[in-house]
Amino acid sequence: MKKVIFAIAAALTIGTVSTAFAYPDAFNSGKEGKEMAGKFQQLSRDNVWEQTEKVDLQFKTYHPQGMTKVGDLYYMSSVEIIEKPVKYDQPHDGYDRSPGKGIGHLFVFNKEGKLLKDIKLGEGSIYHPGGIAYDGESIWVPAAEYRPNSKSIIYKVDPQTMKSEEVFRTNDHIGGVLRDGKHGNLKAVSWGSRTFYEFNEKGKVLRKSTNPSHFIDYQDCESAGKESMICSGITELPQQSSSTAKYELGGLALLDMKKMNMVHELPITLFSPQGHVVTRDPVFLENTKLGIKMYAVPDDDQSSMLVYETKATKK
C-alpha cells in the first residue's frame, strides 16, 4: 500500500489563493485512514476531547454544512437562506414544504480564518450544499433543494483552479457525498441520512439501502482508509421541561463502506459558544500520532472553527 505523500513543493497561486496539495491520496485515505479507523474503534464515551485551538472565521458563514481539508486550506460548504421553506398543511406535488430561496457557497479559508474564495453552487431551487469530501483530485459537493425527496446536483471542484463542474443530477435530496477512492464510486446519504446511495460517476444508482442506525442523522462523512468512512451528525431530542426546546445529541460513526453498516459509534457531548453540539454540521477528522484530531464549525453566521484532540487507548 502506498504511503501518503505530502508534496509541499512550489506553492500554487490562483488569484489570492496559495496552498500546498496532498498527492497522490487524500487525507485519511490509504495507510493514514486505516490507522485512523483502528484508533476510532478504541474510542468510547469516556474519551476526553481537549480543545487545542479556536479559529475565528473572518467572514459571514451563514449556515455551514460540510468541511474538508486540502493541503493547508479548508473548504466549507454553506447555505445562505434568503427565504425559509414553509411546511404545507397538505403535501403539494409530493413535497411537504415550499422550496424557499437561497444561495449555495463553498468557502475556502486559511488557518487564520481568512476567506480566500467563495465558490457559488446550485441553481434555482437547488441551493443547499451538504457534506463534502476530497478524494485526492477533486472535492465532491452535493447541492439539493432544501426539502426531502427532492432533487440534487453533484459537483466536483478542482482545488487547484477553484473551478466547479457539474457531474450529474439525481432525484432525491443528497445531504452528503464522498468518493470511494480516487477512481471509485460515490457513496451518498439522503435527507437525514435515512437512505444510503451508491452512484457511478454518470449518476446511475448502483445500490440503495436503508440506514439501520437511528442514533444520529449523518451530516458530513470522510474516508477512513479504503474500506471505511467516518460520519458525524446530530439528533434533536425533546426535553421534558420544555415543549419547544430540543437537546442536541452529537455523535460519530465508523461505517463499513461496502456493506454500509455501522462498525463503531460514540456520542459527542461538546458544545459550541452558541450552545450547539460540535458535530451539528461541518466536521473533519485527521489522524495524529497518538489519536484523532477533530475540526468542527457548529455555529451559524459568526462562526469559529473549533479544534479538539483525543488519544486512542490500545485494547
Rank of each mutant, 00 (worst) to 15 (best):
K84I: 06
D89I: 14
M67C: 08
M257D: 03
I153E: 12
W49N: 00
Y95F: 15
Y88A: 13
I81S: 08
K315V: 09
T313A: 15
K202L: 13
C231E: 06
L115E: 13
D172F: 09
H276C: 00
F21N: 14
F59T: 13
V86K: 14
Y295I: 01
I119L: 03
N200V: 03
S243R: 10
S164R: 14
L178T: 11
D96F: 10
S209C: 10
T61Q: 12
E123N: 04
G203A: 03
T68K: 11
E80G: 09
S209D: 12
F199K: 11
V205H: 07
G100L: 09
M257I: 15
S213V: 10
L290V: 15
I268T: 01
G251K: 00
S152W: 03
K87W: 13
P64D: 05
A144V: 06
Q51W: 00
F40Y: 02
P282I: 00
E309C: 04
M260I: 13
E165S: 09
N28R: 05
E227G: 05
A20F: 08
Y75W: 06
S125H: 04
E201N: 13
V70C: 05
K314I: 14
D180P: 08
K204Y: 11
H92W: 06
L43I: 14
G136R: 09
V189M: 09
M229K: 07
K156T: 12
F27Q: 15
A143F: 14
G225S: 08
P142Y: 08
S78R: 01
Q42L: 11
L115I: 13
V297K: 00
K156W: 12
K120Y: 09
L115K: 13
T313Q: 07
P142N: 03
T52G: 09
A26T: 05
I216K: 01
L252D: 01
N287Y: 04
K246I: 05
A26W: 05
G66D: 02
P273S: 07
D25N: 12
P212V: 11
I216V: 06
P282A: 05
A10C: 11
E53Y: 02
K2L: 14
Y155V: 02
V86W: 11
K258E: 09
P64S: 10
S242C: 07
E123I: 14
L178H: 08
T13K: 14
L116Y: 10
M305H: 06
S138Q: 14
G122T: 07
W191S: 11
S138M: 15
G130C: 05
M162D: 10
L206H: 12
Y62H: 14
Y134C: 08
P282L: 01
V277H: 00
E112C: 02
E35F: 05
R179N: 10
M36A: 05
P273E: 04
G15K: 03
L43D: 03
T235N: 07
P282G: 03
Q58F: 02
N211T: 13
D158L: 15
K114T: 04
H128G: 08
Y23V: 14
K84W: 11
